[in-house]
Amino acid sequence: MPTLELRDVGKSYGGLPAVDGVSIGADDGEILAIVGPNGAGKSTLLKLIVGLEPATKGTIVFDGEDLTNYPPHRIRQRGIALVQQTPRAFPSMNVLENVALAALFGRANAHRDEEKALARAGEALEFVGLADRRFDHVGNLNLHQQRFLALARAVAGDPRVLLLDEVMAGLNDAELATSISIVRAIRDLRHITVIWVEHVMKAVMSLAERVVVLNFGKVLTQGLPQDVMRDPAVVEAYLGETSQSA
């Protein structure tokens, strides 16, 4: 049984479907990539999972519990964290305070123990390589570091599932390699299931264990990365253009 399962999930804006009857599942400890052209509904799908947008149909089941349309903070506390493409740190707090807030509030039945939260936050910063920046103002971090901060905020709450929304866009080769190794470590060392929306196909091919292709809000196909990449319909419709640009 999948850890996270979407059953016929849909979202419409003014009658136009952005996500149209998507049924997919992610197994425990899997790295699942979701790809597709712009406007395919990938980011909307992640927003539906974490409750930032209400689903207009279908159910989202996590560990056997129906989480459909739960508020985002409760979904986070159940163990599903999202890292968005544009990092959103709290500007008046330093790096450590940003992560400690997530460590304190982003857990189920949190005991609100600030000492432990600070320790977990420090460990999360160590994990993403920002330990030496812990007392820095978040405004002093570059985009790459801000994404690592967002990752630290996500893992500090010990989630079971981590959703990543195009977190590797705009990175150079060295930054991309670091990001890939950190995401792999998140799964391998922390045993977190990763569902990952991405346009950078080089990263997808080196990291994903399974790929789901979305188009016009529907699942076009899914399978092993190399199989999906060889699918003529996928190559022609989506990946051909993206592969060249990546």
């Binding site: 974490v50 409750g51 930032l52 508020p71 985002p72 903070h73 409760r74 986070r76 506390q77 964290a81 999202l82 968005q84 959103r88 740190a89 709290f90 500007p91 008046s92 707090m93 305070e97 400690a100 807030l101 997530a102 304190l104 509030f105 982003g106 857990r107 949190a110 609100r112 600030e114 939260a117 905020r153 709450g157």
Partner: peptide, 23 residues
């Protein structure tokens, strides 16, 4: 910590939700 949680809502309500704070 509670004060920082309030500040997080002031600064970015959606971001606060995503770290588990109930606005």
């Amino acid at each position: 910590a509670l004060g920082r949680a309030v500040r997080s809502v002031i600064e970015d309500e959606q971001g606060a939700r995503l770290v588990g704070v109930d606005p």
